[in-house]
Write a protein that binds this DNA or RNA. Structure first.
Lengths: 109, 109
DNA sequence: TAAATACGATACTTTTTGGTATCATTTTGA
DNA sequence: TCAAAATGATACCAAAAAGTATCGTATTTA
């Protein structure tokens, strides 16, 4: 039974991490820039970034003494694909989404 | 900033709960039936069911001394809508999903 | 009607998670 | 070159989550 990626769903469960994803949707950012938006230590933000990377929701690359973080589609895609398996419980307009997923994944069940 | 429903994302973060959703996709079930599929006490399964209800992922109704649990689309829909805001980071075929979401929600940003 | 069945609720324990504090390492620039 | 800046890593703490044990209540049914 396919349960989706545990690390991805775990990463999405925290509101701070979802907010980080919203920031990175606009622009890639360094750890310091991200931490500047939150009332917590950089070490705490760093841990969230590690979890987001483990969930394949972001990637990061070193650039000098900074590290640039940016969104990665893989985790978002796998989460939305798993949720797509329940399309029969949505209304008809949302169900058209399943068609897009199936043409993407090759209709494997 | 719209972060989606915390209770829904929290409910989706546990593999036992995602497995319960898979079971309920096939058929509605009583607490006893669901617990029969897991190696844990009924009390533990009951707690998971409460979290799934709080996340608007299932509903339940009493039927005699039993309680029937079944999938509810609301939570699934809100989760997938939130993930839909990131469509620009997917490839083109998956992006057609966003059209479905927008026609559903009325294009509010 | 009385035992068995199914669920509800509460107290308790253990593990995981989210956070701080602290120190080390790397890179930059005056 | 050496101090400042940015990140990395580790130990520790508190709160939440996941689970068990136990008891209570409602509903069947023999």
């Amino acid at each position: 039974m396919n349960l989706g990626s545990q690390q991805t769903f775990r990463a999405l469960a925290d509101p701070t991490r979802r907010q980080i994803l919203m920031f990175l949707k606009k622009d890639s950012m360094t750890l310091g820039e991200i931490a500047g938006h939150f009332d917590m230590t950089r070490a705490a933000v760093k841990k969230h970034l590690v979890m987001l990377e483990e969930g394949l929701l972001i990637t990061s690359r070193a650039e000098g003494r900074e590290r640039i973080h940016e969104l990665q589609p893989a985790g978002l895609k796998s989460a939305i694909e798993w949720l797509g398996y329940f399309d029969q419980f949505w209304d008809e307009r949302l169900a058209s989404f399943k068609t897009a997923i199936e043409s993407e994944t090759g209709e494997q069940e």
